[in-house]
Amino acid sequence: MNTFLAVLRRDLRLALRRSGDLATVVLFFILTASLFPFGVGPDPNLLARMAPGIVWVTALLAVLLSLERIFLADYEDGSLELLRISPVSLELVVLAKITAHWLTTGLPLTTAAPILAILFNLPSEALPTLLLTLLIGTPTLSLVGAVGAALTLGARRGGVLIPLLVLPLNVPVLIFGTGAVDAAISGFPAQANLALLGAVGALMLFVGPVAAAAAVRQAVE
């Protein structure tokens, strides 16, 4: 637990030192989403109908933007290798790094989501559900994304590869996330979608760190 907290604290400190990156992700999220009205027209009903999908897709892309930084700096300066040969469990270290990544991307995105909800006329009774799906779903994006980030360490055109690996695996999160908000908009209970979203997250909580740690071991071997 101590190592977990130590790595978490270190990664958070590093991320906060470069808080420009953090702001970029949130700005990207809001900017990209606000392009949609120019593409599909300003009809409020249409935008309200599309809001859950737009928020979720842009959140997914924003998370993608920041995945490379989970491991890359540590890989390049050799600290990842030190972490690997140290006696602490690499899975735990990876989980700490994923947590740090979520705290600096998923969480800010969730707090920025109400702005988009207003811009897109999302019915106010659906807003809590939207925030709840982001709160449950974005950790899964970080967990899956970390696997992609670790796999592409040392790869040629690694940054371009990550989306190719990660996006198909994120389809369930997208479906259950938007499904819950859609249900809330039309006045149906959203529990089923939320439960499934949580189940996917719980599974990836096991698979993600194990696979990412395996990939890190390969990368620094």
């Binding site: 696997v147 592409t152 690996l165 389809v171 479906i175």
Partner: peptide
């Protein structure tokens, strides 16, 4: 690396299939 990806995909494919059916 591709082997890790393949296994993660194998875990995910049933979920993807289920989610797409659901959707």
């Amino acid at each position: 690396a591709a082997a890790v990806l393949c296994l993660v995909g194998a875990v995910n494919l049933p979920i993807i299939k289920f989610s797409v059916d659901w959707w």
